[in-house]
Amino acid sequence: MNIFRLTGDLSHLAAIIILLLKIWKSRSCAGISGKSQILFALVFTTRYLDLFTSFISLYNTCMKLIYIGCAYATVYLIYAKFRATYDGNHDSFRVEFLVVPVGGLSVLINHDFSPLEILWTFSIYLESVAILPQLFMISKTGEAETITTHYLFCLGLYRALYLFNWIWRFYFEGFFDMIAIVAGVVQTVLYCDFFYLYVTKVLKGKKLSLPA
């Protein structure tokens, strides 16, 4: 555990909590892609199956359970409790174009051809692109609520911090996991355009709106 890893995890946790609170307090999931949230629930489910097979630490177990629990709570709020506010017309990204290739890739390129390892690889690949339906939705509507941009910033920052964590671990522990690193770089790059808008607009007190 190093400072980048810890702050990365906390940034991830902050993102998840921000989204849950935003939906809960405003009693609305307008502007939120339910498809991205389903993908994240799928990501956590397939990645944390090792909860059943091995114990790493209390921190590890608690965080995994919190992430999974919050992911399903978010999906429940969007598709059940506040379904009336869900903007399905704008959430039109075709997720099969992500899930099918990612599934194929995880079978082809993995560390070990075993069910649990393939599912872990699937989750790593899927996480790297799971935000695309959300970004697609924002590009379609041309705007995002400020609180939604805070959520996206924390979510993007988390994987960027993990990149520093992997650099740290490579130098000080000789550890590296090429699958996680490549997927992590892809994931972070997908946020770059958003990071730019966040810094130049949202942090200067303006609403995030895209030119028509």
Binding site: R5, R47, T53, S54, I56, S57, N60, L116, F176
Partner: peptide, 10 residues
């Protein structure tokens, strides 16, 4: 590198 088994990172 631990290939199979539990993962430390989240």
């Amino acid at each position: 590198r631990r290939v199979t088994g539990g993962k430390d990172e989240l």
